[in-house]
């Protein structure tokens, strides 16, 4: 786990880095609050922070307040280190948003157990986040999360003026699968489909389970023709790789897919854009299933 050390004192930084490495953590260092905020703006931001109170420029408590004002929902566990003593300092640090407080000069054994406690809380938070954002059966994103990613992708596409397409995919006649083979086999089939989706999508594409057997796939930097290619790869993979429930039970599946490319002049909002892909899916279903239809 990465740990961000924010301290203007080179010796303390050095000592903390050596100790953290010894305890199995990966130290990331910042000499002041501005550098810390830059590190916290990256995709691989550390979530366990050790912040010194007194630094040139923005102080530790002010840095805490700034971090707590973030609106992206990310959790940071903050341990404040300080040469200040007494209850007033503890109260000020905690009110600024610190989770824990350690007075300098600190006993390294105490720091070790405090860091261990912080890392347990960060892991717990990450697990909770995972549970809240993943579909329990298939482990792809759940509807809440894919909606959030969907909104972010639209914003990114607008900002960068880049292409963005979505697919809405529905497994054909899935009710018959459940009625014929049972719900347990249906669950295996859903997992199999998600597995094939993950295998046939690119690293930066996102899959979310939208409803029972309906999935939404976000395709950043992708126009409708490229989306068609991805969709066809998925459609044929699912058609030709049946779900193997047991030695005797193989389930053939097909899917229908609706595609739409984001059009800023036409799609007033996320719902309007989704609606076009969903209508294309409906047309695919009406036209005989096991096919892809692209919204005009």
């Amino acid at each position: 786990m990465d740990v961000l050390i924010v301290d203007d004192d080179a010796i303390t930084r050095f000592a903390l880095c050596a100790a953290l490495e010894q305890w199995g953590f990966i130290p990331v260092v910042a000499e002041n609050a501005d550098q810390a905020l830059q590190k916290l703006a990256t995709d691989t931001t550390p979530h366990l922070l050790v912040i010194d109170w007194s630094m040139p420029g923005m102080s530790g408590p002010d840095l805490c307040k700034t971090i707590r004002k973030r609106e992206d929902g990310q959790f940071f566990y903050i341990l404040m280190l300080t040469g200040k003593e007494g209850n007033e300092a503890i109260i000020e640090a905690m009110e600024a948003g610190a989770d824990d407080f350690l007075s300098k000069p600190f006993d390294h054994r105490v720091l070790k157990v405090r860091i261990a406690a912080g890392s347990r809380i960060v892991r717990l938070e990450q697990t909770l986040n995972q549970l809240a954002s993943r579909d329990a059966l298939t482990q792809c994103w759940n509807r809440r999360m894919i909606d959030e990613l969907f909104a972010n992708s639209i914003a990114e596409s607008t900002r960068k003026r880049s292409n963005f397409s979505i697919m809405v995919l529905d497994i054909d006649h899935f009710k018959i699968v459940n009625d014929t083979f049972g719900h347990a086999a249906g669950d295996v089939a859903l997992k199999h489909v998600v597995n094939l989706l993950n295998t046939n999508l690119r690293e930066y594409d996102q899959v979310g389970r939208y409803g029972g057997e309906e999935f939404v796939i976000l395709l950043p930097a992708t126009d409708r023709n490229e989306a068609w290619g991805v969709a066809e790869r998925i459609r044929s993979a699912i058609q030709f790789q049946p779900t193997i429930v047991s030695e005797d039970v193989h389930i053939d599946l097909t899917v229908s897919i609706g595609i739409a490319q984001f059009d800023r002049s036409r799609d007033a909002n996320q719902s309007a854009f989704f609606e076009r892909a969903d209508k294309a899916l409906y047309t695919a279903k009406q036209s005989g299933r096991n096919r892809i239809i692209c919204s005009e």
Binding site: D7, D9, I11, S54, G83
Partner: peptide, 13 residues
């Protein structure tokens, strides 16, 4: 006080 604080932090190690 800032300069002493900086020195104090280093000495504290």
């Amino acid at each position: 006080s800032i300069a002493i604080h900086r020195l104090k932090s280093a000495v504290g190690n």
